[in-house]
Every structure is written in structure tokens, then in C-alpha cells.
Amino acid sequence: MLVTILANAISCMNYEPSGENDFNYYNDNGVFIVNEGNFMYGNSSLTYYSPDNKRSESEIFIRSNGIKLGDVAQSMTIRNGLGYIVVNNSGIIFVIDINTFKVVRTITGFISPRYIHFVSDTKAYITDLYSSKITIVNPQTSKITGSIPIGAHKSTEQMVQYDKYIFTNCWAYDNKILVIDTETDKIIDSITVGIQPNSLVIDRNNKLWVLTDGGYKNNPYGHEIPALYRINTYDFSIEQKFNFALDDSPSNLCIDENGDNLYFINKSVWKFNITATNLPDVPIIPYNGTIYYGLGISPRTSEIYVADAIDYVQNGKIYRYTPQAVCIDTISTGICPTALCFK
């Protein structure tokens, strides 16, 4: 007995493969919640939520695949029944089956990937935080097929498409929207907006909307009033500009399925009809005591999903609201829920 006690006391750390479970979420209109985790902790995770029965599953990536999602999962995009999860600091894109969550492919070869946008079934663009180029891959073969230099800019972020043009924002210490011709894979123009454009969408009239955060106090790059821009996608001219207050921090511009209403976070959550002539005075969802960390609008129901990272080192929450902003569910997530991806 003494030997047993001694043996337990001196050794045997519990460190082993975590095992794999099978999931089956066919015919379920679920929502993937990408949890960023903490930088250099490698604790990103994926939560799955079924709105119809209000059930959620946490850590589905490691539970179904037996491996970690990685460090700083950034975004997820669904294409043809496959989910593309971009894991920024791990430098990988995991391609999963959106019904079983099993990895079907991986794509590597990036420096610090942020978002993926599909030009076609065989061509996708990937933006990068530290690279002076956008990477082109063939999603069907996982191979890098080319790249688009972005000139003197340091990084690229989100992408939206109108016709053959892709618009991408250069956020950190920058003020440009780059315009890429998808036929030639070349930058053909750039649009100067305010300091630090952080998100963009396209509305039902094919207008490009861009939100800038204005930088910060004492920023050597500059500090100005944040703004919401409406940009013409034919001639790339700025048609309208809506000013916030200097201390505001608008972010996470989203749009509903019909392209009628914009949503964004500026401490509270705000809704803005694309025909409005002024920024709204009253938020649709009020501030809750913590900075909202993510926002998503259900393309099926126009329900509003708001992410709360709480203290950034515990599992966060997603608050699910009806389009009329009535809270109908609270979902537990992983650390720092950042992006929502609707099946």
C-alpha cells in the first residue's frame, strides 16, 4: 500500500489523446460560434447551437476530431456544405463537414490568415494580418495557386463582393478599401475612407457600407471622428458619410439577409435602415456592462446574436434576440466568442 501511495505521489501525469465523438447534425439549421480563445494559449474552440431546440454543444472541434482547434480562431465561412475555419495564429484553415464537424481538409502556408472569401468553387482569397499580399487557393485541392500583392499596405481584413469586384479593408494604421478584379486577380483601385476601416457589407442596392473606428487618442497615425460610409460600387465614390462622436468605437458592421438593415456595435447594438438619413438615437440592444465582442444576424430569421466575452478568460455568452430585440436565449460559448457562422 505504501508503495502504491508513493507511486501515485511521484508520478503519472494525466496527458493523453482526448478521444473522438461522433456528431450528426444533418437537417439542422445550426449556428457555429467561433471562440477566439486567448493569444498564445491555443484555446480556441467551436460551439454549435441549434436555434430550433435551443441546444448547444461546446468544444465540438476537439470532441469530434481529437485535436485542438488552435490559437486565435478568427472566422468561419460555409461553402458547399463545408465550413472553413481560419485559425489566425496557428496559420491554418480547417475545412470541416458542417453536419459531423469532422475535418475533411486542411489548408496551410499562410503567415497570419484572417478571412476566406470564395470567388468560385475553385478559387478563394485569404486575407492576412502580416502579409503584404492576399493568398489565392484552390479550396478543392487545398493548394495555394497564387497571390495578390497589396502594395505598401501592411494587412487586409474582411472581403465582400459585387459583380467581379472584391472590396477588402486595410484596417491597422490605414484608411483604404482595396478593389480587386477577380478576373485578373489584381488590385485595380483603392478607396480612401476614414482612419481604420474595420468592417464592410454590401446592401440590396449593391452599395458598399464601411465602418471606420477613427483610431485612438495620441495615435501617431491620427485620431478622428469614426464614421459610416456609403460607397458607390460602380465608380467607387463616397456617396454618404454618417459621423459618430470622437470617443465612439463603432465596429462589427453586419447586414440582414435582404440587405435592408445594417447592424453594428457601438457600446450598445444599433440598427440602421439603409434609407435612413441619420444615425439612430436609440440602440436596439442596450449596453450590458461588458464590451460586446461579436455580432451576427441570422440570414433565415433576422434574429440578432450578440457575443459577450465577459472578462476574456472565462467561457463567454451569446445572447439571442428576435428581430424586435427581445432576448429569447442565452448560449454558453468558449473563451472570447468572436464570430458567428450560420448553416
Binding site: 511521484i10 501525469m13 494525466n14 482526448s18 486567448n38 491555443g42 468544444e59 476537439i62 478568460v313 473563451i335
Partner: peptide, 29 residues
């Protein structure tokens, strides 16, 4: 030389039901 630390949490709510957020007890010889 022998060294021991009990389980450590990496989440502020001390999440136990996780495959990625805690470190098991440490024994080194």
C-alpha cells in the same frame, strides 16, 4: 528531486468541463 503542482485552471471561472482549458496535476522527478 521531486516536484508537484496540483491541477491549474486557465479560465477565471475554473471551468472543469473542458478538454482545452485546464492543466492536470504536475509531478516531476
Amino acid at each position: 528531486k521531486w516536484n508537484y503542482y496540483s491541477e491549474r485552471f486557465t479560465t477565471s471561472n475554473n471551468e472543469k468541463n473542458t478538454k482545452i482549458g485546464k492543466l492536470g496535476a504536475y509531478f516531476m522527478n
